[in-house]
Design a protein around this nucleic acid. Structure first.
Lengths: 168, 168
DNA sequence: AATACATAGTAAGGGTACCTGATTAAAATG
DNA sequence: CATTTTAATCAGGTACCCTTACTATGTATT
């Protein structure tokens, strides 16, 4: 069962990284205004992918309750990062629109390479990218299997965000 | 600057994994009662490493405010996972002790190998472990540099938790 | 047209993880 | 013995989420 032990070790390391990264920024604070997939950040990210969505659409493709969506949108409005406009076709729906400031906020949430990544050599970086791609691909597949609508959305969301520097 | 691009790509993949894992459990829910390094879980983890700590000690080694510590300890008491005993040496301090139930809670927070790790081959698993070890080692170093007291504590915390199956 | 039902959004209230400021009680120190 | 430091707590606040109503507005049915 050397096989199993290898899987456990790797899974453990991954989990360790996951947990460590939660506290890393707090402690080694470098004031990077990261945009996370939570709350307001989640909304902004979704709007980057496609602007002028209704709150309902946002809720659906983010897997959040409409109430939470409403809350975060309201907070973003107060921060002038989005505006709300009533749809002319259906006066019940509120379309959420990114403001220039909102767009800027997303851009400026710099995607810096953290120092700990710098410790890897060139070939190690390549290895890591390959491995992590396999892992995230499998994760997307699982998410997709559990919720076909969501999966694709998140894939697009992350692709546009984390591979941006690559597109240029 | 192919070098830089590789670093960015790897960092992006890591960030993508980090964000994806936040939503993974919600969506692909498999009811694994994970013990995270947050709030009450953080306290439990610290107590696994060393029992009968004062709230002050907990706060210090977890990098939390004493007020939050107090709050989480209180919640754990209500859940019968820890008990409080007044120190005989210093009647100001409340020692926090794990109950059998608390110990059980930690044990049962199974450290399962998530399905997406299974997609990697044997040699890939080995590679991943090596790479992640380098990364977490660098993270610990950074944390340690920022806060010498904390760093060591967390290292011990995670080592005891995520490498337990390995020690056996 | 009138009634019934479905849908977009909101209000109210709740839970968890954190934080700061102020306060109490007990210990340490001058 | 009076002052200062320390351990813990209370009060109040923010961000992220949810559930249970409830209000508009739209659509379908009678």
């Amino acid at each position: 069962m050397a096989n199993e032990i290898k899987a456990e070790l790797a899974a453990g390391k991954l989990a360790e990284y996951e947990q460590l990264s939660k506290i890393y920024d707090d402690i080694v604070k470098q004031a990077r205004p990261r945009l996370t997939v939570e709350g307001q950040g989640k909304i902004l990210l979704a709007l980057t992918d496609e602007d002028h969505l209704s709150q309902r659409q946002l809720a659906t493709r983010l897997g959040m309750s409409p109430q939470s969506t409403s809350e975060f949108v309201y907070k973003l409005v107060k921060r002038d990062l989005v505006t709300l406009t009533k749809s002319s076709k259906d006066r019940r729906v509120n379309l959420v629109n990114l403001t220039p400031t909102g767009r800027q906020e997303i851009e400026s949430a710099a995607q810096e390479v953290p120092p700990f990544v710098r410790t890897l050599s060139d070939s190690e970086l390549e290895q890591l990218s390959v491995l992590m791609t396999k892992i995230t691909t499998a994760m997307y597949a699982d998410i997709d299997a559990a919720n076909p609508t969501l999966g694709v959305k998140f894939h697009k969301l992350f692709a546009s965000r984390y591979l941006k520097q690559f597109k240029k």
